[in-house]
Amino acid sequence: MNDTIVQIMWWVLAAGALAGAVTVVFSRDVLRMALGLGGFLVALAGFYMYYALPFLATVQVFVYVGGVLVLILFGIMLVHRSEGDARPGLSSRHDPGSAAVAVGILALVTSMLWPLRDVMTERPASAGTKAIADLLLGDLLPHFEAAGALLLIALVAVIVIAGGDDR
């Protein structure tokens, strides 16, 4: 019974993520779009938990939902403030060409990875936080330092771009 519930959870997560993504792309209301993005990101964290990566799931929630989503909401509130009513509508220019591109990419990647379906096993065991630390401060140290430098550069860039002309 445990395994069936886990399998159902996977499909619930997949449905949630797809629902969130569709809301982001098709919703006319800006706040519904932001909430759809939030649901999508939480569903992704659920996927990481399913694959037994609790650290990554928590970091996803912390940084993406608690950070990036809040940033996007702030952006919405700051940009749409100049418009008349409180909840302006979002619009899209639906065209079949874009839909063809999107479906085409789906078909392409799926067909490329199709031969791998025999090699895929189900849910191997997880490693601990100590292994992550050993890796990030050991073999992946240049990557770690580069990520830190990237964050610093992004911070300075944001201050310069959004800071105005009085500097």
Binding site: V25, L90, S92, L106
Partner: peptide
């Protein structure tokens, strides 16, 4: 999910 996002980038006006 990636394709849905791609469609959004191509069609969204805001």
């Amino acid at each position: 999910l990636f394709s849905v996002g791609l469609y959004g980038v191509l069609t969204r006006r805001d």
